[in-house]
């Protein structure tokens, strides 16, 4: 297991370097000159030239890249062109908010999806099964902003039971939790559909397997058969799907943060792109990519923990 984990960790290194390269290309491909943006619209040519030298933009490209990698590794992603704040500082604040949102969403949505999938599988062909599967197709067809705006309208505006803008504080405070409910429900709803569907399919496959028949023949109760012998095996393909869905979840998180004014990395990235604040935009994109790589790593390790065959390899 440890060897697999180390191997998997080493594999993430070239991908991370790739992300950094993309971030650097991003900085150099933008048509707008960062020095001109920083200097402001009324700056003279001399001032712009001076800022170019200060920012190292007059050095050769490879030197800029090496310096850039060094800076990123030491936690320096430059400063915002809009408010002159260090990008790392803005990111560290936003990253916590996004992590909070995603974790809270997974905490409620993942168990619900698995239970719904198991329930549908155990009631195969009934009205319940069809309702759950129909709901799952509808779920993957819903634009995130439709879910978000509907939740906002019903619970935030009509019933006025939950706050719907911003973050109320840390998650363990009542206000913090209340603020996080609507965004995490919104994000979770797009995630439930595909996971419930996969759990159902995988559970149906597993329940047909020989070891499940043996367990039943031994006289084990149906609950033990389903949870101990069925679910664990059924969860292996579900874990793969969860890994594949993380990108989808990330996209959902970016839209959700924008709707609920949640101060996360996604909202930071979108705001920076619209404002042409390239250092913040590339910092946020790098942070989102690294978060994505890290989550995939966790899923892979979880996969190995669930499936002894992977550990054996």
């Amino acid at each position: 297991m440890l060897r697999y984990a180390v191997q998997r960790l080493l594999l993430a290194v070239p991908v991370t370097l790739g992300v950094l390269l993309i971030g650097f290309i991003l900085l150099n491909l933008v048509p707008s000159d960062p020095a001109t943006v920083r200097a402001g619209p009324s700056a003279s040519a001399e001032v712009i030239a001076q800022i170019r030298t200060e920012m190292g933009l007059d050095r050769p490209l490879w030197e800029q890249f090496l310096r850039y990698v060094g800076n990123v590794l030491s936690g320096d992603l430059g400063t915002s062109l809009v408010n002159n704040m260090p990008v790392t500082e803005e990111l560290s604040r936003a990253f916590g908010a996004t992590l909070e949102l995603v974790v809270l969403c997974l905490l409620w949505a993942l168990p619900s999806a698995i239970l719904l999938g198991m329930f549908a599988a155990s009631r195969r062909g009934t009205l319940w099964d069809r309702l759950i599967m129909g709901g799952s197709v509808a779920g993957v067809s819903l634009p995130v902003f439709l879910i978000g705006m509907t939740l906002l309208w019903v619970f935030g505006y009509k019933l006025q039971v939950l706050p719907f803008t911003g973050r109320g504080g840390p998650l363990w405070t009542v206000d913090g939790l209340r603020h996080a409910i609507l965004p995490s429900v919104c994000l979770g709803l797009i995630f439930i559909g595909p996971v419930a569907r996969m759990t159902r399919t995988s559970m149906l496959e597993t329940l047909k397997a020989d070891h499940v028949r043996t367990a039943r023949a031994k006289g084990l109760s149906e609950r033990v058969v389903i949870f101990r012998h069925g679910l664990r095996n059924a969860l292996i393909p579900v874990t793969t799907l969860v890994g594949l869905q993380i990108g989808y979840l990330l996209g959902g998180a970016i839209v959700t943060e924008t709707i609920f004014s949640w101060p996360g990395v996604g909202r930071l990235a979108v705001g920076a792109i619209v404002a042409n604040d390239i250092p913040v935009a590339q910092g946020a994109i790098i942070a989102l990519s690294l978060g994505f790589i890290a989550m995939n790593l966790i899923v892979d390790l979880l996969y190995a923990a669930l499936d002894p065959r992977v550990q054996a390899k």
Binding site: L26, I246, G247, G251, I254, A281, I285
Partner: peptide
């Protein structure tokens, strides 16, 4: 290995 939405953000930034 990169989600589509990140390409969207990156291309829009470029």
């Amino acid at each position: 290995s990169f989600p589509a939405i990140l390409f969207g953000l990156a291309v829009a930034a470029i």
